[in-house]
Design a protein around this nucleic acid. Structure first.
Lengths: 202, 202
DNA sequence: GTCTATATAGAGATAGAC
DNA sequence: GTCTATCTCTATATAGAC
């Protein structure tokens, strides 16, 4: 599995066994980090035995990649929902996005960005499938930011601003985690606002 | 040492044994990450036995903290040297700092920011001495940035800009490492420039 | 597909001689 | 202070019964 050939069938005993495993992995890996969580712990949290887990995933590395891939679209959808629900002009709505991120960063279970943290932990293996999944996710976020900005600004400017906003976001993920302080995300929102409004006057 | 009590003496066999160990640890931990480097590997790279290493450091955790503490002042001095060597006004000189960082990020041995990466790896133990050392270093950098900006801007504005610039820097460390692309640091420099020059017009 | 039990390897840290 | 040898623990991954 994981890439079932046509003709192969996925006869999972419990429906959604794979999902349960990925969900448990996501919770534990995000909370404690990849290296600190054993496969045993994931299996126990998912309510399956280790042997079952290894029937669904070839290795822990595959499981880590599956965790990040599973979070890609939900994370993106959350950003979009926050943006869409906000009122005002483009800058106001992006400001709302950062405000939501800051609220999130204030929660007890917040531990920064799982993608950046995984990339940091796997620095010794840049080709790791989980690192590639992280790259894809960040590119998706940047492309989405670029698309919403491009609705009101020239394309080249939108791409530049999208990257700058993501740099602020990622910086706030990293610094906010280091200092355990959501004020960094707040400051990132202010900087994003300044960049957007300055750019307007050009 | 590291806070040797008065009266205590450190009769190290080879002069600078501790430094050799810390240097080897810094090289390996930065290159491969904390979890991927064993104490054996550090001892071998330093040319000492593991027993000698444990005579100088109580645990691997202590060694990691010593590595980050040892890099604090040299890193800061490097930033200052880059800034001091540049010509032009404040924005020009800060721009030069980002340009130097981008050059650095293009090198083969560049692996992002060791402080942020260590904090990401040690997310499960926020009170870890290495994490505290990382916080101190980042605060030192921000304070230094604030001081140079305050030479030409009001204090409150300088503090705000210093934090924004560091967010961009940290974001570029994280994204540049994930994508293995120094363009992110370049983009951070442009954003920093925009923030500084916008702020001027206020 | 799922279970119990285990192979195998590598880690951090220490014992005891010199 | 430094050495060799080793203890102990935990990890990933697998064997073989059902």
């Amino acid at each position: 599995m994981a890439e079932a050939k046509p003709g192969t069938r996925q006869r999972s005993g419990g429906a959604g066994t794979r999902e349960r495993i990925v969900d448990a992995a996501a919770r534990l890996f995000y909370r404690h980090g990849i290296g600190s969580v054993s496969v045993d712990a994931v299996a126990e949290a998912a309510g399956v035995t280790k042997r079952t887990l290894y029937n669904h995933f070839r290795s822990k590395d595959d499981l880590v990649a599956a965790y990040l891939e599973a979070r890609d679209q939900p994370n993106l959808a959350l950003f979009q929902a926050w943006f869409d629900a906000a009122d005002g002009d483009l800058a106001d709505r992006l400001r709302a996005l950062f405000r939501k991120l800051a609220e999130n960063a204030g929660g007890r279970s917040w531990k920064g960005c799982g993608y950046l943290r995984t990339a940091a932990e796997l620095v010794a293996t840049p080709g790791h499938p989980a690192v590639q999944a992280a790259r894809r996710h960040k590119r998706n976020v940047e492309a989405w930011l670029s698309s919403v900005i491009a609705a009101e600004r020239p394309k080249a400017e939108a791409e530049r601003l999208a990257r700058q906003l993501q740099l602020l976001m990622d910086g706030a993920f990293a610094a906010g985690l280091l200092h355990r302080d959501p004020d960094y995300m707040q400051a990132a929102g202010e900087a994003a606002d300044a960049l957007l409004r300055r750019s307007e006057g050009r």
